[in-house]
Design a protein around this nucleic acid. Sequence first.
DNA 1: TAACCTTTGAAGTGC
DNA 2: GCACTTCAAAGGTTA
Length: 432
Amino acid sequence: MPQLNGGGGDDLGANDEMISFKDEGEQEEKISENVSAERDLDDLKSSLVNESENNSSSSDSEQAERRPQPRPDLDSYEKTRDYFSEAFRRQQDGGFFKSPHYPGYPIFMIPDLTNPYLSNGALSPSARTSNKVPVVQHAHHVHPLTPLITYSNEHFSPGTPPSHLSPEILDPKTGIPRTPHPSELSPYYPLSPGAVGQIPHPLGWLVPQQGQHMYSIPPGGFRHPYPTLAMNASMSSRFSPHMMPHHPHGMHQTGIPHPAIVSPAIKQEPNTHDHMSPSMHSKSPGPVKKEEDKKPHIKKPLNAFMLYMKEMRAKVVAECTLKESAAINQILGRRWHSLSREEQAKYYELARKERQLHSQLYPGWSARDNYGKRKKRKRDNKPDSTPEGKGSFSLSVLLLDLSSLFRAERTPSIGLCETVLLATLGLPLTPN
DNA sequence: TAACCTTTGAAGTGC
DNA sequence: GCACTTCAAAGGTTA
């Protein structure tokens, strides 16, 4: 996807959003204005519809049956999804996020089966009646969608339109809505427990009672793996001293290691023979090379699609009974493209804030720092480099799953995911 | 045991 | 400025 501007100061990500939206928007405009542009989608859709009608004798009741039934193992995920969706709904109430734009594309809208909201944005009856009161905290006190639930105040502020829609904060250069900061600083990033209490939490309505932490903290607290970033100029300028108390042990303010930081001991660093040397916890200067060797691996901030994948992976896994990430990612990629502009905008916004916070936390960090961290092992034979090869991979994976699915007779009829996959692969929907 | 696979997007590199 | 490369997540697969 083309990029408009690599650097934008504090305008991180705004441009790429625009480009992304533009691309997607162009697609959508073409979709709405030019029928031929939807040929691919229509092909997929029509093949699905026709074959579904012909082969699966679909009815509303059956389709209802196809919908994923509540599963115990999904409860925790569903709960977290629910209160997260509730957060989004509240934001949608602000008038920004509207219903998906593809009402005529059941295939592509189906993916959000577990989404409790109807296409018009209303809460589905099942969601309304499922007693899905926002759960205050995940069992492990770490939300599986941590990057998503931790965003800015205004992002989830009930009843107020998203700040990035405010005309006064439009980017003067691009006209792209910008989100003001520092209020958008995510609790995902270092904040002292005291600060947590002082800064309104973006999900304040579901934040635990006062005095409780958003995250669980081990008795001894976490070791801060990266003392040099415990405080930097940008952080100190954004938080008053009382919010950033001194931590004599070099611990993180909250004791919560940033997810972007991977301890060398955890990350497969070839030269990490010791877990956490004392120098990691003190600012004792050492040889430059030694410092670099022990330099924690700061991960790249997640982009919009990665955030989307993180949120939706579990759902796809549950729906499709697939476990292979490669196959799941293919599905997620399709779903990503099927998302409406507004839905994608949510993730672009989150990603933009991710990058913004990341750049503020690690001013000197560059994506280049992580170059070469992975050892590439190029396979000699690359039959999959061709589209046919890729297709064969997908086909093998998906057929494997489908065959097992049919054999197991776990579903009386072809489920949504399988339907999509079969249609995508141009296979008949009748299980043989 | 660690890279590969697969996806999209951001960012870096090279020309 | 464009094309290409690398990495971010994830977990089963493969060398």
